[in-house]
Design a protein around this nucleic acid. Structure first.
Lengths: 339, 339
DNA sequence: TTGTACGCGTTATCAT
DNA sequence: ATGATAACGCGTACAA
């Protein structure tokens, strides 16, 4: 033991009667060590409870064995989002076999300043991590652009809006997903189909609206749109507006499950039976979808899989691969009771 | 620049015409440096875009400037929990002024093995972090006990069940919180008050049940209990059982908002009006509470504040304070429409 | 106030 | 197959 606790390579070497270099080889699984030596060293390691000093290793290898999860948004809602939870789970599962650690980087202040942004960027530039996964929902200022241009392996959880350089990203096909949802509404005979869209500075908001618009246009039906902000309140207000402007609507495609729960409540309060009077389709298939009355028909995203791919791609980039294009996954319509 | 990118202290020194030591002093804000020297060094730092190498620094200072968030549970639900999101936000906000980084440690596998646990413990023992915040809900095996005995500053997000050594922890007074909720039900005239409790291997489950039992006993009323597992499904099953065994119940205290949403649905399906026939009180005041019909009366936890305290306590312990006792915060009854 | 010199624990190069 | 030995970038006694 050195005075502050952990035994070092040196001490293991002494105990095993070999040199530091040999111990290092054993620790790192070099093939060119005699079995006997390996055994002796492993015995010593066990006996001393040796664990490699990451800092020392990082200093010489110039690798940190840690990767960042960057959430360049003040919005703690990102975390409450089951979407995020699932992705994190996928990421962590993929990273487990590697020795890489996950480092969490989030904007601390409710209103992040330019200084906060710079702190973030400096950290990433500072070589503290081998790569970064960016979970961003809004196309906030130019932070995304700066992130994209960092000399660091990086991958985005969604096509970052406002970024004009090619970047690796993983996402679902939001346009196609929305199409599935809206087409389902048409297929069950609805013709007056409105949408509660998300904000247009988010990929998810933008693309899901596009999907809705495409289908409606193809069917020769008029689009009826109200914008929410992916919160329950926003969904409530938007639904109220729709009901006010189009009291006869018989179908509703809501761009997120959370907003859809609000929509269901508003519809019920205004004496619309779901799905009899108004059929409702959400998006996400989050835990919320099964807690509503009636249970929500919704478009599912394969969140864990997205997280896993995010991690895989990043690992590949760290290993040297030059990946700079989006990867798009399919959604699946989950039919329950609301449509 | 060295060949792999970042400039070093050495290069800054050369440019500024001083020694490495002086640059180091400036970087670390030593008071005994001439203003002129400081200016020159800062100029050089800016010009080179110098950023200290964390690994090198950690190697000599034996501090890592990073702290771990440990989630010793396979359950990704922990992350979807708005409770967790809020706490994380509080933690991160408190840690922002320090230069500490958050490192996320989670059990990767759905069924964590003994090996997974050991990996976790080894990492923490390995001196990779200065301290750890443990977010645990279940009293899983003996992991918590082992965590508690680690020679590392550590603080728990809730009184860890099954741990027999004194540990620092931050939590709300779940007993008192539950009491508030149940007392409210009694105060509005309900007498046949049942509870959907959480699992007893979780502090939250155990204590909230205790609160319910205390109040009922004091009022001389019989306890009616069904157990859920803090999921919507569990809440649904439990409510069904209660309704089956006690069809005349007129009040319901549900140990979590998520379970409460399920309870509301079941009640509605069984033609009980809320709150007219059955008044319902939840626990958490999560985002769910305002998405239900009727909106949920519930017991609020000050989550951000809890997170902030968690971080403050840990920082104090890292600085040498010997804190080994629980810190308990108050809850607040939020009255909405369900009771 | 500033500089010199050493050590932190590891990996990598070069001998042997 | 193994062992010396030199980096890696930084902080800090100690000396000046």
């Amino acid at each position: 033991m050195n005075e502050s606790g952990s035994p070092t390579l040196e001490q293991v070497a002494a105990l095993a009667g070999v040199s530091r270099a040999t111990v290092s080889r054993v620790v790192n699984g070099s093939p060119k060590v005699l079995p006997d030596t390996v055994a002796a060293v492993e015995q010593a390691i066990l006996q001393l409870g040796y664990v490699p000093n990451r800092a020392a290793r990082a200093l010489v290898t110039r690798r940190t064995d840690s990767i960042a999860i960057v959430v360049p948004e003040p919005d703690s809602r990102v975390f409450s989002d089951p979407f995020f939870a699932g992705m994190l789970s996928g990421v962590s599962r993929t990273l487990a076999p590697t020795s890489s650690q996950l480092v969490l980087l989030i904007e601390p202040a409710p209103e992040p300043t330019e200084a906060d942004d710079q702190r973030l960027l400096r950290y990433l530039r500072g070589g503290h991590v081998d790569g970064a996964i960016v979970i961003s929902h809004h196309g906030r200022d130019n932070v995304l652009q700066e992130l994209a241009q960092l000399p660091l392996p990086i991958v985005f959880s969604a096509r970052p809006l406002g970024v004009d350089v090619p970047v690796a990203s993983v996402d679902v096909d939001n346009v196609a997903g929305a199409r599935t949802g809206v087409e389902h509404l048409l297929s069950i005979g609805r013709r007056k189909v409105a949408t509660v869209a998300g904000p247009l500075d988010m990929t998810a908001g933008l693309d899901r609206l596009t999907g809705y618009q495409e289908v409606m246009k193809e069917a020769g039906l008029p689009a009826m749109i109200a914008y929410g902000d992916f919160t329950a309140d926003g969904g409530e207000q938007a639904t109220l507006r729709l009901l006010d402007e189009h009291p006869d609507l018989d179908g509703l495609f809501v761009a997120s499950d959370l907003m859809a729960t609000a929509a269901l409540r508003v519809l019920s309060q205004h004496d619309r039976r779901v799905p009899a009077d108004v059929a409702v389709v959400g998006f996400d298939d989050s835990v919320l979808a099964t807690t509503t009355t009636p249970k929500l028909t919704t478009v599912r995203q394969p969140v864990e899989q997205l997280g896993a791919r995010l991690a895989e791609i990043l690992l590949a980039k760290i290993a040297g691969a030059d990946l700079r294009s989006p990867e798009i996954y399919d959604t699946e319509l989950i039919i329950r009771d609301s449509a």
